[in-house]
Design a protein around this nucleic acid. Structure first.
Length: 564
RNA sequence: GCGCGGGUAGUCUAGUGGUAGGACAACGGCUUUCCGAGCCGUUAACCCGGGUUCAAAUCCCGGCCCGCGCACCA
């Protein structure tokens, strides 16, 4: 086990779930420190992607009814049929293998696959027989309600909860694009083989923003803020760039401004959270890697002990999700977008003559009339009703040219989705923050977390573990806690040991109560990164700490250096 | 899911059939205590199930978990 992972477990950042029953791959518990860190990260994300955007946050169920995932496509794309060779143990996606070997398109059902296997006597590459085809479903299935109940799934992404509520959300935003809707929460994928510690989990934390835009305008009003920001890009043909985002859009490397905007914002967020800029890049999905609905997709990748890992996906999902839900639910998922100026449009309309239509088409007359009205066409007089093509005699309608004033149009918004894997980001921050240095000839482990993200921000330490040092230190601890600073009190072991303890978990500042405290009502603040100390009066302690914790200022700005 | 290698206190590790040992950590005490000091003491472990054996941490089988490779990752 790596040094960092050993520390994370030992100090209570995270550990394997269900340990006393032998554990289960793909699940972790966040311990006190890991949970604190992830919560901080979530709040930082909120600041970036909700508070400072035209966006809101919602919370929807983690269990979804079957309909949702039929519409979204997950129900079919998640239930691949797999076949396994009895001899060499290789597992294939049946439809892929059959297409490759036999060139046949086949239904993804167990029966269809079984028929093909026996009909063509299909063998594995190694010559072995295949066992029974079996479904593997990457969604966790469940039953809702008693008895057989209704089939449901644990959500594989938080996004669908947002798409489903789109009408309510559009209403909330008074039908004005663009707007964003965020959700932070757990999602579930029944991975075949979870690996690599916290990198691939079966239950994981996502923060997703669905940013709905008018497809006719894929520009972003705030893009100028980032136009000149240089980022490290790897495009779909593996070409690498260090390029200003404005240029990347102009050159067509990035499809449009909104994606570029979120790449910039994501970068800003990750750096603020403590990701090392030198171990961050944005990589474009290759054509065969991209989901079928996405027109462009960029991953933020960070370099870790596991290599480059994806921590954020930024995709243009187009109108895919809303259109699918519109189709499957029968609801209108469009927004009326007014034109700047109303447009006069001359068009020919068909006006049905009901007195003729009635006798000819009887009970179908109404449907025929509606079909006629909905036609733009001047040329065609064939309508389709209930799948039947019907020729309508000319005496049944008249064509008139009318002038209409159009005030706008109905459009199905496109959605740009930045989707964050919080567990991976949390881990990457820890790995990038982990460091060792030499203090007084001895190696020191130190977690150089950003001050605003550290789970324990301040430790208050009495120099001696007895009165009056301990009493004073407890008093100060209470004071800091009341002011919202995450503070711990610790009087166990020598002072040096305690400093090391807090260095290891990334606590930025230690407050030490020493003999001088009782002479002049001052304490020392020790900086984790430099181990240097300054003296400061108790009266200004809270304000100084709050300022330090929200900046990267040097403690020496606030007091005299003590015991250099 | 396949193959290979592993699983001993909180952590790291010794132990190849017969008493489970060490280091670090933690906890209590002593210590005139500002960078993992010292001394004394305490807590604390053989992944689970079955088999072989008088006797299993140790040998065998199965499972679970971890690592690596393959496959999978909408």
């Amino acid at each position: 086990m790596s040094e960092i992972l050993e520390m994370l477990i030992r100090r209570g950042f995270l550990w394997q779930s269900f340990e006393i029953y032998g554990g289960m791959a793909g699940f972790i518990d966040y311990g006190p420190l890991g949970n604190g860190l992830r919560r901080r990260l979530e709040n930082l994300w909120r600041e970036f992607f909700v508070v400072n955007e035209r966006a809101v946050e919602i919370d929807t169920p983690t269990v979804g009814i079957e309909e949702v995932y039929i519409a979204s496509g997950h129900a079919t794309s998640f239930t691949d049929v797999a076949i396994e060779c009895k001899k060499c143990g290789k597992v294939y996606r049946a439809d892929h293998y059959i297409k490759e070997v036999l060139g046949l398109e086949v239904d993804e059902s167990v029966e269809a696959i079984r028929d093909i296997l026996s009909e063509f006597d299909l063998k594995c590459d190694c010559g072995g027989e295949f066992g029974e085809p079996a479904q593997f479903n990457l969604m966790f299935e469940t039953r809702i309600g008693p008895g057989k109940g209704k089939r449901g799934y644990l959500r594989p992404e938080t996004a669908q909860g947002i798409f489903i509520a789109f009408k309510r959300l559009a209403d909330y935003f008074r039908d004005k694009l663009p707007f964003g809707v965020a959700q932070i929460g757990r999602s579930y994928r029944n991975e075949i083989s979870p690996r690599q510690g916290v990198i691939r989990l079966r239950e994981f934390n996502q923060a997703e923003l669905e940013y709905f835009i008018n497809p006719r305008n894929k520009r972003h009003p705030e893009f100028d803020r980032y136009r000149n920001v240089k980022v490290k890009l790897v495009d779909k043909s593996d070409a690498e760039y260090e390029i200003a985002l404005g240029d990347a859009v102009e050159k067509g490397i990035i499809l449009h401004e909104v994606i570029a905007y979120f790449i910039a914002k994501t970068r800003e967020f990750l750096l603020k959270a403590g990701i090392d800029e030198n171990r961050l890049r944005f990589r474009q999905h290759k054509d065969d890697e991209r989901a079928h609905y996405a027109s462009d997709c960029w991953d933020a990748e960070v370099y870790t002990a596991y290599g480059w890992i994806e921590v954020v996906g930024i995709a243009d999902r187009g109108c895919y999700d809303l259109s699918r839900h519109a189709k499957f639910s029968g609801e209108d998922m469009s927004i009326f977008v007014p034109f700047k100026e109303p447009v006069k449009v001359k068009k020919k309309v068909i006006i049905p003559n009901m007195s003729k239509l009635g006798p000819i088409f009887r009970h179908k007359a109404k449907k025929v009339a509606e079909a006629l009205k909905s036609m733009e066409a001047e040329e065609s007089i064939v309508v389709e009703v209930d799948g039947e093509k019907i020729e309508v005699p000319p005496e049944c309608y008249t064509i008139e040219e009318v002038e209409e004033i159009q005030h706008g149009e109905k459009i199905v918004p496109h959605v740009i989705e930045p989707s964050f894997g919080l567990d991976r980001i949390t881990y990457a921050i820890l790995e990038h923050s982990f460091d060792t240095d030499i203090v007084d000839g001895e190696e020191r482990k130190v977690l150089r977390l950003k001050r605003w993200i550290a789970p324990v921000q301040v430790a208050v330490l009495p120099l001696l573990s007895r009165d009056p040092f301990t009493e004073k230190a407890k008093e100060i601890t209470e004071l800091l806690k009341k002011r919202g600073i995450f503070t711990e009190y610790d009087d166990s072991g020598s002072i040096g040991r305690r400093y090391r303890r807090y260095d290891e978990i990334g606590t930025p500042f230690c407050i030490t109560v020493d003999h001088q405290t009782f002479d002049d009502n001052s304490v020392t603040i020790r900086d984790r990164d430099t181990t240097s100390q300054v003296r400061i009066g108790l009266g200004e302690l809270v304000d100084v700490l709050l300022e330090l914790l929200n900046s990267e200022k040097d403690i020496r700005e606030f007091g005299e250096v003590f015991r250099d």
